[in-house]
Amino acid sequence: MNKMQKRVGIGLLVLSLGGGLVLGVSASDREKNEGKPRADVAPVQNTLYSTECGACHFAYQPGLLPARSWEKLLTGLGEHFGENAEVSPATLTALREYLTGNAADRVDHGRSRKINASILDGEKPIRVTETGYFQKEHRELSPHMREKNSKIGSLSRCEACHTQAAQGSFHEHEVRMPGEGR
């Protein structure tokens, strides 16, 4: 790490600590900060992952699935939900390190913990939509919203409704359903 990177790193640390303090004080403070989403899963900060995986789909944050799920998914990239998503061995190693190292069962973000807690020990879901927590949170959606809304298309498209999804924030008040209102 060179000096510049160190400085930027320290700057970011101070900023994020400061942000955490501000948001942690009270509910009214949180309201004041509306519009500045508080990440409830850690946002993606890995260029390799963003480019390799985010080129085709929403770059699901590693904290949305436990490490064993990511392991399973990465062993089957040749047949990835009906598509080929092969990567080089070196890329695969790097992706595995990032995804498993920041998985739902390895981090301390609120929503990651809840997702992880909703998965039975022996289960390795490779779709976030299969997890108990996801299903509980989306159970109020009508079949029309789930499947018939062509602007959403699939519940896998987080960003279609969750306006701050890319920042790792999935709060209900940030949801805007295309053609449906809130």
Binding site: C56, H57, F58, E83, G153, S154, S156, R157
Partner: peptide
Amino acid sequence: GKHVKTGK
């Protein structure tokens, strides 16, 4: 273009 499955 647009990815037929993911909409990206």
